[in-house]
Design a protein around this nucleic acid. Structure first.
Length: 296
DNA sequence: CGCTTTTGACCCGCGC
DNA sequence: GCGCGGGTCAAAAGCG
């Protein structure tokens, strides 16, 4: 079965064959380490079209936008200290008209859910929650990482809440949720069946809090986008951080909007990363941290 | 003791 | 309607 939210990221062709409704995919055909294209990212309009590293933006379904390909400037990999190498990034936003931000803990509070079950509410809270989840789909993005470890360090703490065997894959898929009780972000980690060295990580939702900090990179705060980027420029995190990819999208759109066409017409189901095309000073906060959380 | 992981069961959506 | 597969729950076990 083709899971629209979970295309086989290990298959290059599948990246462009994504048939998921309201999804937007980025594909980068590269095997370089993350730091190669990440932590020194300075996307410029002078896209090196000769470079094999390409970022493919693909959107299907409701938005009949053509697949647009752009390229990223590449800097030679200067370090292999990181145990992981990002291969591709995919943004599969599936937000609907009611894009529930991660900070809307009032409407989706795990603690409340757990306690409500014992209260025997007239309506099964579990069912309510399911219904809510069905209606409200959160932005998500995925990336492939060459790594020996499954659970990549990304600055947040995660609690594993499930594991499932994956069809046509000898490797199980693990499900994690952010340990922050108010945060509804989840991530899914699975290993490529074709290349066991590749870990496919899919993030869903938006964090409503700061990171806990990288073990080897000091504390990383999400309050200061400038320090965030400069932090990475000077001190690449040991492993890929989802922030980077959203920043990547920013950069791409900012620098080359002519070649990277975003589904601007999807106003009714505005993807998070589209709405995040903000002024530079807006930075990553537009993607990750809800505006209401920034002044805390 | 508190937190995390494991794991079987359950629920739901989707395709046939 | 049925079966399959993905995703989640929740109790038990493990760990520091």
């Amino acid at each position: 079965m083709n899971d629209p939210e979970n295309p086989d990221l290990t298959n290059d062709s599948s990246w462009t064959q994504l048939t998921a409704p309201d999804s937007h995919f980025f594909h980068r055909d590269t095997s370089n380490i993350l730091s190669d294209f990440a932590w020194n990212l300075h996307a410029s309009s002078q896209s090196d079209h000769h470079h094999p590293h390409s970022l493919r933006f693909d959107t299907t379904s409701r938005v009949p936008s053509p697949v647009t390909t752009t390229t990223l400037p590449s800097t030679p990999s200067s370090s292999s200290s990181a145990a992981a190498a990002a291969l591709s990034v995919a943004v599969t936003d599936v937000s609907t008209s009611n894009n529930l931000p991660a900070n809307s803990s009032s409407s989706e509070n795990p603690t409340e859910n757990s306690t409500a079950s014992a209260a025997k509410a007239p309506e099964p809270p579990r069912k309510e929650k399911k219904m809510a989840q069905k209606r409200i789909r959160q932005p998500r993005f995925a990336f492939m990482t060459k790594s020996d470890v499954d659970n990549l360090e990304d600055g947040y703490r995660w609690r594993k809440y499930g594991q499932k065997a994956v069809k046509n894959s000898p490797f199980p898929r693990s499900y994690y949720r952010c340990t922050n009780s108010r945060c509804t972000v989840k991530k899914r980690v699975e290993r490529s069946s074709e290349d066991p060295s590749i870990v496919i990580t899919t993030y869903k939702g938006q964090h409503c809090h700061q990171t806990t900090g990288f073990p080897r990179g000091g504390i990383l705060t999400a309050h200061d986008p400038s320090s965030f980027t400069s932090h990475f420029h000077h001190l690449p995190p040991p492993l890929p951080n989802p922030y980077y990819y959203q920043e990547l999208l920013h950069q791409l759109h900012r620098d080359d909007t002519s070649s990277l066409r975003l589904p601007q017409s999807t106003t009714e189901d505005e993807p998070a990363f589209v709405s995040s095309i903000n002024p530079p000073e807006e930075g990553l906060l537009g993607d990750i941290v809800p505006q209401t959380m920034r002044n805390t």
